[in-house]
């Protein structure tokens, strides 16, 4: 649904651009292709790493790691799994909801979801390429710590 909206917006602007200036439009498309081709090797590598990782860390394994463990150990475990894996939202949320049902706490789930979204160990080489080493490491470290704050808040709100 949302992707279709993105296509409509992108092609809408593309047509508008073409009507206004053909050469600029072709420059834009060249730029789009060049940027894509530039990071394609990293993209493909990330995709294969995610594939191998998720094949090993199947939902059952993740459940085992986070599921029954509670307290700080459970949160720590959840944060590590969340940081190293890269699961698309449409898989992650049902998984999180299943984890809740199988006995994981809200705090553990909050840490898992937050690190999953904000911390990317697999994508850090790509991030470094754009932001430099220091900024990338700082951003990920802060996001990691922040995920625990989110979890504490979730723990207070959802008792």
């Amino acid at each position: 649904m949302f992707t279709i909206l993105m296509y409509i917006v992108a092609f809408g602007f593309l047509i508008l651009s073409f009507i206004k200036d053909k050469s600029k439009t072709s420059a834009a498309l060249k730029k789009a292709w060049k940027s894509f081709e530039n990071i394609l090797p990293q993209f493909l590598a990330i995709l294969v790493i995610i594939g191998i990782m998720l094949a090993v860390l199947s939902p059952e394994v993740i459940s085992g790691l986070i599921g029954e463990k509670s307290g700080w150990l459970g949160m720590l475990m959840a944060s590590v799994v969340g940081s190293v894996t890269l699961i698309p939202g449409f898989v992650a949320f049902p998984l999180a909801s299943a984890l809740l049902e199988s006995g994981a706490g809200f705090r553990q789930i909050a840490v898992f979801i937050s690190t999953l979204m904000m911390v990317g160990i697999v994508t850090i080489p790509l991030e470094i390429q754009y932001f430099g080493k220091k900024a990338a490491i700082l951003r990920n470290s802060f996001a990691f710590v922040f995920s625990f704050l989110v979890a504490i808040a979730i723990g207070v709100v959802l008792r």
Binding site: Y7, A10, F13, A28, L29, K30, A32, W33, S35
Partner: peptide
């Protein structure tokens, strides 16, 4: 694709 088209534009 739309992300990169928007990026180019």
């Amino acid at each position: 694709p739309p992300i990169f088209i928007l990026l180019g534009l």
